[in-house]
């Protein structure tokens, strides 16, 4: 399998406070480090889950990948071609799609559904034949009746709006779809429909997906690989099934344990993870997770751990992570 998207040592910083004054006096502006040392690749036809608490940098990563957020250092490649220039990102946007967390809010409110799903063709000047006919086809692909083309976004239900977003994302048959919380706000019975639709289309069109979510139960079922973020760093990434079966980073383990079980016989009485995610302004020294880690040692408080290989395609950023016996 070849990689569709490659990220190497990506770092994203934001200028902190007013950037004007330091620039005037010729000093470097203070910068807030949002993402650092992100190395990740998404293979063709693969579905990657990106997991972490709010504030861990998941959405920022997706935005940086599409060039909506400038990278401070590191390299990104799409199908082997390096990204960075304006033109490269413009070309990238033809091949990728980002699905937003709130489907209704991500649809332009005064446009009709039919115009919205066919808009990518207009923007990229792609031939689409009869616009009405193309809209009907796209809507049919996502299981929506053609009559919905005449509706405005606010007239749709959550599930319908989600499907319209899928149709719009797939209009130009992209290579990679980034989906931010694709099931947020949906009922469980509808959640499955949307996920099944996405994985069905993935198989048929050989798409790659990156699914950003904090819903571990869902990620477990629909992704091949999983990457866990904490305070803007990847703490573990590996094959979904293996990571769930035997998480190597204590943070991964506590996230999995924190998930409420729909089974009273599996109630847990101890608390898997205490405290809150620290502020980006005050990153803990050493391993950034040590303030909440049940297994933290003196070494963890001082020395920042590097990513360690556990097995091929499986890494964890922890001093205590042991490689898989071969």
């Amino acid at each position: 399998m070849t990689a569709v998207f490659d990220i190497e040592a990506l770092q994203v910083d934001l200028p902190l406070g007013g950037a004007l004054w330091p620039r005037l006096i010729g000093k470097a502006a203070p910068r807030l480090n949002i993402l650092s040392d992100i190395t990740l690749s998404i293979a063709s036809g693969e579905s990657l889950g990106l997991v972490g608490e709010s504030g861990s940098g998941k959405t920022t990563l997706a935005r940086a990948m599409l060039g909506l957020m400038p990278a401070s250092s590191g390299t990104m490649r799409f199908e082997g071609a390096p990204l960075g220039s304006r033109a490269s990102f413009t070309a990238l946007r033809r091949q990728t799609a980002l699905m937003f967390q709130d489907p209704v809010a991500s649809l332009s409110p005064r446009m009709r559904v039919g115009a919205l799903v066919t808009e990518p063709f207009v923007i990229h000047r792609e031939p689409m034949g009869n616009r009405r006919e193309r809209a009907r086809e796209l809507l049919e692909t996502v299981g929506l009746p053609a009559a919905i083309a005449e509706r405005f976004p606010h007239e749709l239900s959550g599930g319908q709006a989600r499907r319209v977003c899928v149709a719009r994302a797939l209009a130009l048959t992209p290579r990679l779809v980034l989906a931010d919380e694709p099931t947020a706000g949906l009922d469980v019975s509808v959640q499955g429909e949307v996920l099944n639709l996405m994985s069905g289309l993935r198989d048929r069109l050989n798409l790659s997906f990156m699914i950003i979510s904090h819903n571990l139960a869902m990620v477990r079922h629909v992704t091949d690989r999983i990457a866990i973020m904490y305070l803007g760093r990847l703490v573990e990434s590996g094959p979904t099934a293996q990571v769930f079966a035997n998480p190597r980073h204590p943070y991964t383990a506590s996230l999995i344990a924190a998930e409420p079980h729909p089974d009273p016989r599996r109630r847990r009485d101890d608390l898997a993870i205490k405290g809150e995610i620290p502020s980006l302004l005050q990153r803990p020294a050493g391993c950034e997770f040590h303030t909440r880690c049940p297994r933290a040692t003196d070494r963890c408080r001082v020395e920042p751990p590097a990513l360690r290989a556990i097995a091929p395609g499986w890494q964890a950023r922890c001093h205590l992570a042991e490689p898989e016996p071969t």
Partner: peptide, 10 residues
């Protein structure tokens, strides 16, 4: 978040 959810449940 899941971690906060677990804490509030607790």
């Amino acid at each position: 978040d899941v971690t906060m959810e677990a804490q509030i449940i607790h």
